[in-house]
């Protein structure tokens, strides 16, 4: 059965929230760390220096300079939540301990070399998995020109799905031959 108009509008609201989130993200370029070593807002396990390192780890794994820290901090929150498990926390702590003290301040190439050392540890896979959640965050989708769910506008069936204008004309002509 086709979805009700109600469902459509509910989804649209979600999309709008996503766009607003993206705008907020691009304005909030720096994450304000408290002066003391207390946990940053929303973090339970990690204190401010550890959070700063984890943020730098996430940014090093998937660096997109145009994105502010906010969506990366969502990834740090996911690591923080998982670190409620003592075994998980121990493996992350052991990995972080192997990074140089000035890791967060170093440039991308230096940080990549430092992270490479951890590549074969289980902690690295966990950190990569958490950092990769960046792309699940609707706030970053506008940057990648990914529109997300298509239910809100009824799918692509009545929209343009075939617009390969960059292909040479003689190649494109073949497409008529192939449409059955």
């Amino acid at each position: 059965m086709p979805s009700s108009p109600l469902a459509f509008s509910a989804r649209r609201r979600l999309l709008l929230t996503g766009v607003a989130g993206a705008l907020a993200g691009s304005l909030d370029l720096t994450f304000k760390l408290p002066a003391a070593a207390a946990s940053p807002p929303d973090l339970v396990v990690y204190d401010a220096p550890a959070a700063r390192t984890l943020l730098a780890v996430c940014r090093t794994l998937f660096p997109h300079d145009a994105l502010g820290d906010a969506p990366y901090m969502e990834c740090v929150r996911a690591i923080d939540a998982a670190a409620a498990d003592a075994g998980f926390r121990a493996s992350i702590d052991a990995a972080l301990a192997r990074l140089p003290a000035d890791f967060a301040a170093a440039d991308q190439a230096v940080r990549e070399r430092a992270l490479s050392v951890l590549r074969d540890t289980p902690a690295f896979g966990a950190l990569r998995g958490a950092a990769g959640k960046l792309y699940r965050n609707p706030a970053v989708w506008p940057h990648f020109d990914y529109p997300g769910p298509s239910l809100a506008f009824g799918g692509w069936v009545d929209r343009k799905m075939l617009d390969l204008e960059w292909l040479p004309a003689e190649t494109l002509q073949l497409s008529e031959v192939t449409s059955s």
Partner: peptide
């Protein structure tokens, strides 16, 4: 059942 809307999921 309805025709495909080309949702892509």
């Amino acid at each position: 059942r309805p025709a495909c809307r080309q949702f892509g999921f």
